[in-house]
C-alpha cells in the first residue's frame, strides 16, 4: 500500500503551486538584495552601530568629536 496518496488536486494545481513557489523565492531574493544594497549604501559601519542593552565604550563619542 502506498504511503503517499496522490490526490488529483495536486496534479491539477501543479502549475499554480510552482508559480507561487517562484513568486515566494523571488520575494525572498528581492528582500535579501535590497538589504545588501541598503547596508552597503550606509558606507561606514559605525553609523548604524549602537548600544545593545550594554554600554559600549568604543562607540561613545569622544569630546570634541562631532559625530
Amino acid at each position: 500500500m502506498a504511503i503517499h496518496v496522490e490526490h488529483e488536486i495536486h496534479e491539477r494545481r501543479k502549475g499554480r503551486n510552482f508559480g507561487v513557489l517562484g513568486l515566494l523565492l523571488a520575494f525572498v531574493g528581492l528582500v535579501f538584495a535590497l538589504t545588501v544594497v541598503k547596508v552597503l549604501e550606509l558606507g561606514e559601519a559605525k553609523k548604524f552601530e549602537t548600544f545593545d542593552h550594554v554600554a559600549r565604550p568604543a562607540i561613545i563619542p569622544e569630546e570634541g568629536d562631532t559625530q
Binding site: E8, R12, R13, G15, R16, G19
Partner: peptide, 16 residues
C-alpha cells in the same frame, strides 16, 4: 475516482 470528478471539476485558474 477521476471518472467521477472529470465532469464536475471546476476550472482551475492558472497563473496566467
Amino acid at each position: 475516482m477521476t471518472d467521477m470528478t472529470a465532469h464536475d471539476t471546476p476550472y482551475e485558474a492558472s497563473m496566467g
